[in-house]
């Protein structure tokens, strides 16, 4: 479990606090999406989960270890992996498999064990076929999956992804998201996904909405996106499926904004049009 309690953090004295009393928990096996407009503190929060940033006040606990415990630093970082937005700036080595091995080399794992684990990690993320290539010959989506492989080679229990699809084309985005989902569903890794894409957030088990350094709303995608006006007031969008129900609702038709999957929405519209 990752547990943040009354988290307070500011980058400088003068500016407003980036995190202003955040409470957050992630249970094992969950798929959580974190939403919020730019500058709401979601990236800052993410960097607290593996002790890249340390809280000014409050605590962050990972499996019972406080992130302020120096002697547990590498245990925490091994348990909580992190993937960032720009894949180019996270790849260290000049060959894909060497990069995937980077974390394990740092952890001092035996070479034969490194081999086994990176092969497994590359299989899971579908980049095995590029293992001998140079990273700059890959597409953005492929590079991002290499970065994810580099993280899951550590066998973390949690993986925090900070807008991993923001720089990718639709095809790369789809594949990266598919990889993330399979890590959660098939391998039981807890996923904390920070995103601006509502269709990605809609696939999560739970959504956490942040604004001005605070968690303002929490709930299942249905609960969150059915409150269209609230979501819009936080300068966020709702998925198109909720949007259509909401707009039709404004015209006086009674449709549920809870139908957020495309199938549900289509069924609802079908019923509505039929009579």
């Amino acid at each position: 479990m990752i547990k943040a309690t009354n988290l307070l953090f500011g980058y400088s004295e003068e500016r407003e606090k980036a995190l202003n009393g955040v409470n957050f928990t992630a249970e094992k096996g969950e798929f959580i999406a974190v939403l919020g407009s730019n500058g709401c503190g979601k990236s800052t929060l993410a960097k607290h989960f593996n002790a890249i940033l340390l809280p000014e006040e409050g605590t962050v606990e990972v499996e019972g270890m406080l992130t302020t415990q120096d002697d547990r630093l590498f245990d925490i970082r091994q348990k909580v992996g992190m993937v960032f937005q720009n894949p180019d700036n996270q790849i260290v080595a000049t060959i894909v498999e060497e990069d995937v091995a980077f974390a394990l080399e740092n952890m001092g794992v035996e070479p034969s064990e490194i081999r086994r684990r990176i092969d497994e990690a590359m299989e899971k993320t579908g980049v095995y076929k590029f293992k001998d290539k140079a990273p700059h010959h890959l597409s953005g989506g492929q590079k991002q999956r290499v970065a994810i492989a580099g993280i899951i080679a550590m066998r973390p229990d949690y993986i925090v992804l900070d807008e991993p699809t923001a720089m990718l084309d639709p095809e790369g985005r789809r594949k990266v998201l598919k990889t993330i989902k399979s890590l959660n569903k098939e391998y039981g890794i807890t996923v904390i996904l920070i995103t601006h894409y509502m269709d990605e957030a809609a696939q999560a088990d739970r959504i956490v909405v942040m604004s001005k350094g605070k968690v303002v709303k929490e709930g299942t995608p249905k609960e969150i996106f059915s409150q269209v006006e609230l979501v819009k007031s936080l300068s966020l969008d709702v998925p198109q499926t909720s949007e259509i129900a909401y707009e039709l609702g404004k015209l006086g038709h009674n449709l549920s904004t809870e139908a957020i999957s495309i199938d549900e929405c289509a069924q609802q519209l079908y019923n509505f049009l039929k009579g």
Partner: peptide, 15 residues
């Protein structure tokens, strides 16, 4: 880039 890479390396237990 250097700044982001350093963070990413720290995340991967580089010491």
């Amino acid at each position: 880039r250097a700044d982001e890479l350093a963070t990413a390396m720290e995340c991967r237990c580089y010491h």
